[in-house]
Amino acid sequence: MNRPLSTSGSQLQLKNRMSLGQSVRQSLTMAYRGLLKIKRTPEQLFDVTFQPIIFTLMFTYIFGGAISGSVKGYLPIIIPGILVQTVITTSIVTGVQLREDMDKGVFDRFRSLPIARIAPLAGALLADTVRYTIATVLTLAMGYILGYRPDGGFDHVVIAAILVIVCSWAMSWIFAFFGVIARTASSVQGISMLILFPLTFVSNSFVPVKTMPDWLQWFVHVNPISHLVTAVRQLANHGTIGSDFAISLIGAAIIVAIFAPLTVRAYMRRT
């Protein structure tokens, strides 16, 4: 072996803990790996490409006339709703793919490397923000094509888009948790859908809350998705940042604070 003996790999400093800086760097490397994988298998972007297009068309024309009398009048209500629903649904795929990825031998190597335990997870989740961005841009573009002209202006729409992406990233920790503890990828899909369906539909995403029975209204009001949708509407349609914006971000932080450690622990225990 004519390997030089003086590369940094041989100057090991034996430590039992990773520093924060190292953890962040390793997570970014894992995210880079995720991006490369997306680049190699673009077909896995199928869902984030077509779902926004089809959902926007479907919901706008199915509900538009019935609820607001006209499609154009419905757009400011529905586009933020669809945006939140579509992008959050996309985050399920994160859990499913994590499960598939973890079943492969390469994860054994990641586990055997002296890297932060959170890096493979955080990296995968970080790379998936690309998917959310694609879904966000496509939904907004579809809205624009259908005639949606948000009054909040471009800058507020961008803030709204970032808010949705951040919240979806936070939600994806929940699905990542299922991804880590589930036995098969399809069961991850099943459980996640079961949680997400009531969350996204029993909200103010698609229909005015007033039309629902009281007990359902109560749920709609506590549902974090409703707050997110309201925050997006306020930003995009009025250019205002209100309490719902803060509630959404706090909610996202709480989800990450609970599910990131849970997921990492489950990830370490698996095996």
Binding site: K15, G105, R109
Partner: peptide, 17 residues
């Protein structure tokens, strides 16, 4: 982990890359 290298029984490299 800083002292070992592991070559598993089944390929522990990334197939798509």
């Amino acid at each position: 982990r800083q002292l070992i290298g592991v070559t598993g029984q089944y390929a522990s490299v990334d197939e798509t890359l």
